[in-house]
Amino acid sequence: MPQVTLDDWAAMPRNRAEVRRGVLVAAPFLDTRHQLAVTRLAYFLDVRVPDLVALAGVLSEGTVRTDRVTKFSEYAEVGIEHYWIVDLEEPASMTTYRLIDGEYENFGEHTGKVSLDFDGIPLTLDLDALTTRHAQRP
């Protein structure tokens, strides 16, 4: 399969695809609840800190293996320090991982309102509000 360049990616219409190791891969369809949670989580994580990368995967039926297996190795390989997995099944929960010596270690499992110290930055997330009709502001 041909490699996708950055110029190729920039020229593509935004749809349900991602690039994995230079290869274009179709992403599974995500339901409205999942999309809402992803959008709200991105809003909550809008912190301005140089050299800080946090990634959160929101589990869905079509992404469980990718989020729990593939991304672990890919993200660790490139040194992404924080990886969080949000599961929207009731009750909504989040497992936080941190890269230590090249491997992700579980740093906690959370439900409800989560208060974290994210590299010196206090961060509070209401996991239940990720999919409710009216989300709370952080």
Rank of each mutant, 00 (worst) to 15 (best):
Q3P: 01
D8K: 08
D8H: 12
W9L: 14
R16Y: 13
R16H: 14
E18F: 07
R21V: 04
G22A: 06
V23D: 06
V23E: 12
A27D: 10
P28H: 03
L30W: 07
L30D: 15
L30A: 15
Q35H: 09
L36R: 13
A37S: 13
R40L: 01
L41W: 07
L41F: 08
Y43W: 13
Y43I: 03
Y43E: 12
L45E: 06
L45Y: 14
V47M: 09
V49T: 13
L52C: 07
V53K: 09
L55M: 10
L55K: 13
V58S: 00
V58W: 04
S60H: 03
G62Q: 06
T63E: 05
V64L: 11
V69D: 15
Y75A: 05
E81R: 14
V86A: 06
V86T: 02
L88R: 00
E90R: 04
E90L: 06
A92Q: 03
S93Q: 11
T95C: 06
Y97E: 02
Y97F: 15
L99W: 05
D101V: 00
D101N: 09
Y104F: 11
Y104N: 01
E105V: 10
E105L: 11
E105Y: 13
F107S: 09
G108Y: 00
T111W: 00
T111A: 05
K113H: 07
V114C: 05
V114I: 00
F118L: 15
G120S: 05
L123A: 06
T124K: 09
D128G: 12
A129T: 01
L130A: 04
T132P: 02
H134K: 14
A135N: 03
A135Q: 08
R137I: 04
